[in-house]
Design a protein around this nucleic acid. Structure first.
Lengths: 137, 137
DNA sequence: AAGTAAGTGCAAAGCCTTCGCAATTAGTGT
DNA sequence: ACACTAATTGCGAAGGCTTTGCACTTACTT
């Protein structure tokens, strides 16, 4: 019921595929479209990958999910309700370190002051190297 | 001559294609492989796109060029001699604002202190909205 | 219960990038 | 200058990932 309203209040039809895509994004955190599809297939094996893509886009349009670009590779989706955080992406080992957005406040403030830029650190990862990779050759 | 030594000192053969790719990257700043190819074609129409890709990779391996991920889209190459800067990428209008790396020092230091993370702000753009887009609906 | 517009599945196409392979060519030694 | 060898090139094809067109299905409206 709650779910029904959640989607329908946004003007979306309530299809099993759509519900499952939303549920999968919420359960997985930082999931690629492919991973979302895998998850959905557990309960709805027939779902098509393009349906997943379309629903991710739709759900993003109404604000229920969002995507970020974490590594070099692909897009990842997360629920809008997740706590906002920046991602530090180690270019060597691929580890993702999550940083509470509070810890970045003074930096984003300085970009606002200096450049009038309203920063959204959640959307793109920050590249670099984690401690252990940095200490390796 | 200078160019010859520059490439050959790195252990690379001096082919017209390679020289032109390097020159194009230097001239264009933040160019996509496609743009580099276009530029090279002005003086060497026969060049193949895959040759451009391979040379960009090769030139990067020896440190003459580097790539960054600026927008949603593709990779962009710049000469290693360019001053290092972070990129603020407006998600609405696509504008890129360059920020001297000095201006980010205290932020990267705090990531080092707090997470042991060695940040490379030049490699991935920082997403957000520029002043004028922010003030629009 | 019927109508209609949104949503789905499927297959194909589109980008961007990489790869295999045969032909070419830069740099080396003669 | 000439021949040799390995690097480099062009070409075509293939590979990911994502989008699209279209006919069929289905959720919601009345």
């Amino acid at each position: 019921m709650a779910d029904q309203h959640e989607l329908r209040d946004k003007g979306l039809r309530l299809t099993p595929q759509r519900e499952l895509v939303l549920a999968a994004v919420r359960a997985l955190e930082h999931a690629t479209p492919e991973e979302v599809a895998e998850k959905v297939k557990l309960t709805h094996p027939g779902i098509n990958l393009s349906t997943v893509y379309r629903n991710l886009e739709t759900l993003e349009n109404v604000g229920l999910v969002q995507h970020s670009h974490l590594g070099h590779g692909g897009v990842r989706y997360h629920a809008s309700t997740e706590e906002i955080h920046a991602h530090l992406n180690c270019e060597s080992c691929g580890t993702i370190i999550e940083v509470p957005i509070d810890a970045t406040a003074s930096f984003t403030q300085s970009l606002l002051d200096g450049y009038g830029f309203h920063t959204d650190l959640a959307h793109l990862a920050i590249a670099g190297r984690c401690e252990s990779c940095f200490n390796k050759p």
